[in-house]
Amino acid sequence: MMRFLVALWLGTASLLWAQAQPAIELRNGWMYSADSGMVTGAFLVIQNRTNQPDTIVAVQSDCAEHTEIHTTVRNSDGTMGMRPLRELVVPAQKTIVLKPRSLHVMLYHLRRTLGAGDRCRLVLKSKRYGDLPIELDVRR
């Protein structure tokens, strides 16, 4: 009887824990400081906890006039550059890290100067889950 109760409690606890976890989790969001009107990059972690792939189809922010997902590329001649991505697929049960020298969110024409310690809200548009918001810490 005791074993049954413990198993029941563990089962219920793990179910509640799973329900408390978002299907797509965004965390560790930050961006580089920049002047009003300038461009800057933002970075974060996207974790897909589900058994289905999801796609980020757009990004929006009140802090900037226009926002895109970019990737950094190294060309055959050794030069570095950026290219926009139409969408970003997050495979099932995988985590994607947007980080410097790699994938990043590009914010065009900041609406105000953002310095270290400021915050900026970013919304990722998920094909399956709609708006996914995250607060970014601004770093120098």
């Binding site: 580089y32 920049a34 300038m38 461009v39 800057t40 990059g41 970019h70 950094t72 570095m80 950026m82 410097p100 020298r101 990043h104 590009m106 914010l107």
Partner: peptide, 10 residues
Amino acid sequence: YTHCPDICRM
């Protein structure tokens, strides 16, 4: 260049 959000920032 000042419009570079990634490599130059680093």
